[in-house]
Structures are given as structure tokens and as C-alpha cells.
Design a protein around this nucleic acid. Structure first.
Lengths: 245, 245
DNA sequence: CCGAAATGTCTATTAATATAGACAACAATA
DNA sequence: TATTGTTGTCTATATTAATAGACATTTCGG
């Protein structure tokens, strides 16, 4: 197991950031669970083959994220290590999926708009290009930490009060129910991973260089008629996607 | 749409690398399909708010990947833009999945070993810890470009000739068939995205800072008995994972 | 064939990153 | 309480990343 932790120079990614990423990974892998602490700076410096100050920069970044806390004289203790397991299946729903893993989940409406469906959205929802659809931008959090941000489109003809119902109920599932749709299933999901852009860094409170997993999904009613086209970006270091087939 | 392309300073990720990532994304999004060329360096520099030399560093990195080619006097032309769509379902198989998207697919055996199953592997395969299993390390390519590298474990008791059969047939599916297993299905898949480590950079021929999607999966025979535990790392900028439910 | 527009190359300067070493401050413990 | 093992802070230096400007070279269209 004991994989050699290698960092590369002259790559455009600063050593301290590479090291921060590796330590974050080790933490979420449970490598330091025995002590609940990160190894001493000198040890890490030796492991990575860099100067102690470089390791300190990495740990400072992790402390900034709230992942660890350094205490003079004692060491650097681990504050958090969870990676939420997020199910993707025919019945994917945000809040249910996290059942038990987080004390509190929240979905916050950032923006809403009514606009003509175009290209990808119209095709996904199977409505004619130009037909009105409702766009909702959300940020979802678990225990106060943002986990994902999403942009969803709904056909306005069928769900005219989507925005209002969501604001009232704070749940897509409940907003669907309030408008007469009691059940829906996931019909397709596409995943892509990339670096977070500036907007996502801000929304998800990520540190620059962080990774997001972008899931483009379509939900449909039991008859197979699409009801939602969504694009959700997950903070990759906070989630694990579990695919149930 | 025209999202502001923002780069962040003092983040541990060099500006030229952030810009290279953004341009790569624009290329795969088809933003430059009208001309088949990247915008002029001066235009990009203005868009990103950086010096032209910084943009040149980014383009040099992309040229190094073979994604673009700069021609003095004319501009920078796009050489490649594909992102392979990779299905994940109960019947996920590498070569079939890419049907039609690539002219030629190849799976190459890097290493093999017989070792006692431990922890995660034993649990996934539902065999007692310490029981022998066969480990195969593969790299899979499409049209000569590496797409994923994987480490798989098989119970030795049931598939003693896994390594030999794979070397002969160059296919996991066929190696299974040669040993009497005619069908198998995917029972679980977990996805995580992270930065590639040094070994993955080399195997997948990625540029440092690149992202991999790590899929941890278990395949089972029709009776539900696990036959394979695998961990596959995809080059994130070359694939799109399509989940069929 | 000239000019506009693009990439290529060079020098110089500033800012960020990384290394090196020394020592202070604090915590736990023998 | 003295020792050991930690993190915190300081100075100094070298390397890499980024900016700035000037000008050469190539391509293409009028």
C-alpha cells in the first residue's frame, strides 16, 4: 500500500499546493486515523523531499480550509475528514441520499429566470427550441458546508410555479409534488471532472485549483416525459459518488 | 452563456496552467468550432487579463499535449477536441463501450501478481482475508491515446489462469469466458475525482496538475458472487462518464 | 507587393515560490 | 524541572512565474 508520495516540479502547480492535495487525500483515506494528527512537519518534509517551510505552506492552506489545526508544541490535529457518499441511481434525490451522513442539509435558491429553451436544454427536456422553461440556480449544503451547486431547467408549461414552490418548500421533490408530480426517476447522468472556475470556487468555498465533478442529468416522470434538466457541480474533495445499478 | 473566464492569482496554481485548463475546456466544449482555431494570443491575453507571454506559456503546454499547433503568421489551430463518452451500467465493458467512437482500442497488461487479499479487496470480493487473489494492472487506450489505467483483483481459486488468459486474449471479458464465466454484471461503482499522482501522469501521459476520475467497482456473476474488484483511473479531460440506470 | 495580423524571440524587471539555517515558544513527559 | 519533540518566526538567497516592451518572421488578402 504505502504508495510513494511524489511531487513534481516545474509543472505550474506549486509544490505546497500539490502537497496540500496529497495530505488532504491521506486524511480522507484515513491514513492518520490512529493518531488523529498529521505527521510532524519534518517527517512530511522528508517524505515529500522538500523543505519544511514548503510543508508549512501546505498545512497553512489546509488550516485555512478548516481541515486541520496546528498547535504549537503538540502538532497538527485533524479537524474534519469526511467525504460524503452521494448515491446516483434512478431515484437520486439530494437530501434523502445523505440520510444519516449529515446532521442538516440545506438547498438555497440563488437565482431564477424564465427563458426560452435552447440547444441542449430543449433536447434534454424534449420540448421545442424556444419554448419557455424555468431556470433555478441552487447551492446545496450539508452541515453548513456547501457540497454542490446546480443549474436546473423545468418546462414552464407544466410547472409554472416551480420557483415559488421551491422557495416555499426548499426542496425540488416537494415542489414537484405540490404541482402534481408525485414521483420521478433519473433517466440519464453524464459525469465530467475538471478544475473549478471562479464562480464555483466562490459558491462552494473551495480553494483555487480545486476539482469539481459536473453531473449533467435528466429526470423524467413515470411515463418517461422529461421534467428536469440539471447540471450539478460537486466539490470533488467532499463527495464520493456511489452508482447503484 | 459567455461566462467570464476568470483566473486567480497567488493560489499555488500558475496562471499559465489555469489558462491552459480553461482553453482546453473551451476546445472540448466546441467554443472555437467555427474557426477551428484558438483566438489570437493578444485576444486571449485581454480576455484573461494577463500578459501575452503568460498566454503563450499556456498555449505551449497545450501544444505539448498535442491539442493545438501554433503556426507563425496564421494562428493556433486545434488538432484534437474529442472527449470519449464512457458508459457505466450493469454491463460496463471497456471495449464495447467505446464502440464507434474510436477506431482502435487496446488493453495492455503492465503487471501481474498473486497475493493474499486484504481489507477492501477481500471485503469487495467476499473472500476471507488472506485468501489468494490475482492482481492485474492494465492501461487501456483508444486510438493510441491512453484513456485509463486500472488495478483489478480476481479470486485465484475460481480464475487461476486469469493473467495468462488475459495475455492471450487481451480482454477481461474473453478471459472470463475462457474460464467458464459467460456473463457478469457491475454491482457497485464509486467515483472520486482528484489530481493525478506521478505514476498516473506517466501511465496516462498527462501533464502535471491533470485530473483523474477514480472508479472503484465490483463485478459479479449472474448469481451475485463477486468475480472482480477493480480500481480504474480515467484521464478526466479525455472522457465523459455516462451512467445508464 | 505592401500592409495587416498573427506567432516567434529577445532583454529587463518584479513578484511569487522554494530552500536553508537559526532560534524562540510551547507542550508533554520522564 | 530538565529534556525532547513539536510548531512559530525571522533572515537570506536562488529559482520560477509573470509582466513589459521591442522587434523579427511568417501568412494572407487587397
Amino acid at each position: 500500500m504505502n504508495a510513494k508520495k511524489a511531487v513534481e516540479r516545474q509543472t505550474g502547480v506549486a509544490l505546497w499546493r500539490q502537497i496540500a492535495d496529497l495530505i488532504r487525500l491521506s486524511i480522507s483515506n484515513g491514513d492518520y486515523d490512529q493518531t488523529g494528527m498529521v505527521p510532524p512537519e519534518i517527517v512530511l518534509a522528508a517524505q515529500f523531499g522538500v523543505n519544511r517551510h514548503t510543508v508549512r505552506s501546505a498545512l497553512a492552506a489546509l488550516a485555512d480550509e478548516g481541515l486541520v489545526q496546528a498547535i504549537q508544541g503538540r502538532g497538527t490535529i485533524i479537524q474534519r475528514k469526511e467525504r460524503l457518499s452521494f448515491p446516483i441511481s434512478r431515484r437520486t434525490r439530494f437530501s434523502q441520499g445523505l440520510g444519516g451522513q449529515a446532521r442538516e442539509t440545506e438547498a438555497k435558491l440563488l437565482a431564477q429566470a424564465v427563458l426560452p429553451a435552447a440547444g441542449e436544454v430543449a433536447a434534454g427536456l424534449k420540448i421545442p427550441p424556444g419554448a419557455s422553461c424555468i431556470q433555478l440556480d441552487l447551492v446545496s449544503s450539508a452541515d453548513g458546508r456547501p457540497v454542490s451547486c446546480s443549474t436546473s431547467f423545468f418546462p414552464q408549461g407544466r410547472f409554472p410555479a416551480m420557483a415559488e414552490e421551491f422557495e416555499r418548500l426548499h426542496s425540488i421533490t416537494k415542489a414537484f409534488m405540490a404541482q402534481g408530480l408525485v414521483d420521478y426517476v433519473r433517466v440519464s447522468t453524464e459525469l465530467v471532472a475538471r478544475h473549478a472556475d471562479a464562480a464555483e470556487l466562490a459558491l462552494l468555498r473551495l480553494s483555487p485549483g480545486a476539482i469539481v465533478i459536473e453531473a449533467t442529468a435528466i429526470n423524467a416522470d413515470p411515463e418517461g416525459v422529461p421534467v428536469q434538466f440539471s447540471r450539478t457541480r460537486f466539490a470533488a474533495d467532499r463527495v464520493k459518488l456511489k452508482i447503484d445499478t
